[in-house]
């Protein structure tokens, strides 16, 4: 399948990418593993692609000012095998290793996945449960968007025209924090039918986030405030519009959400 013809520009700095986006109907090309399949099906027909895959400043993982900083251009494969992530945010490593397959993880990036905002993508649940911030940059400067404000609808985020994601910043979890990511994968695509990410803090407070269940990944506050595993499971995924498709009906998906929340809660108990 051949995409509709487009212009191509490679940026070597973030500012160059932002300048290239300011004119015309351009889209960012990072790993290309969400965008290119959509373009080959002609669901997406941008007039110009701005390739950011060679911008070194967007790649890498470091600890800075009490936060773990993941560059938007960092691949899933790099996150899955990174020592800092494995020791401080183990559920990020778990989730990264469950995305797609080896080849997809070698190219797909965390920033690309977040910007695309597929409702069944894994990272949504992870950034929500970890109280992350998404750092964006456009011609008028940088913004820090809390993960809870980032996802606004199906394939829709708080990114404004001409902005790109530069970093994901996660507060370094305190000693004693436990995390878990439990996922029921679509057997062919490996997207999440249900993904449940939880972070249990040292003081016992638990963040619970789901992906794959509704049209946007979400924090489940009713389940978070429940007093027991049983009560949390009962409360989970209620009061939201649960997705339904040929693979999993609304009823089955909601059931899976509860089952995978239980697995996650038991894993950090």
């Amino acid at each position: 399948m051949i995409p509709v013809a487009f212009d191509y520009q490679r940026a070597v700095t973030v500012d160059e990418a932002i300048a290239a986006l300011s004119s015309g109907d351009g889209k960012i090309l990072a790993g290309g593993h969400s965008l290119l399949p959509a373009m080959k099906l002609r669901l997406n027909q941008p007039a110009k692609l701005v390739d950011i895959s060679k911008i070194d400043a967007l790649k890498g993982i470091k600890e800075e000012d009490g936060e773990i900083v993941i560059g938007a251009g960092t691949t899933h494969g790099t996150i899955a095998s990174d020592d800092l992530i494995k020791s401080k945010l183990p559920f990020f490593a778990t989730a990264a290793a469950l995305i797609g397959d080896v080849q997809v993880r070698n190219h797909g990036t965390i920033g690309g996945s977040l910007a695309h905002a597929d409702p069944a993508a894994d990272w949504g649940a992870l950034v929500l449960a970890a109280d992350a911030a998404i750092i964006t940059k456009g011609s008028s400067g940088s913004r820090r968007v809390a993960a809870v404000d980032f996802f606004q609808g199906l394939f829709t985020t708080a990114l404004e025209d001409g902005e790109i994601i530069t970093e994901v910043r996660i507060p370094v979890p305190a000693e004693g924090t436990k995390t878990s990511y439990q996922k029921f994968s679509q057997p062919a695509s490996r997207f999440a039918i249900v993904g449940c990410a939880i972070m249990k803090k040292a003081d016992g407070k638990i963040n619970i986030a789901f992906t794959g269940v509704g049209e946007v990944p979400f924090r489940d506050s009713a389940a978070e405030s429940a007093a027991s595993i049983e009560a949390a499971v009962t409360a989970a995924a209620e009061g939201i519009t649960v997705m339904s498709d040929h693979f999993a009906s609304e009823e089955y998906r909601k059931h899976l959400a509860k089952v995978y929340l239980r697995k996650a809660l038991e894993a950090v108990a």
């Binding site: 290119l36 494969g77 070698n106 190219h107």
Partner: peptide, 28 residues
């Protein structure tokens, strides 16, 4: 031709890559 089956796998800079999901210009 949809990055599912892996028949097009090659190595780009030593890493397994589905070459149906990469543009030739990206391989420059």
């Amino acid at each position: 031709d949809t990055s599912s089956c892996g028949a097009c796998t090659i190595h780009v800079n030593g890493k397994a890559t589905k070459s149906c999901t990469m543009l030739a210009v990206q391989a420059d």
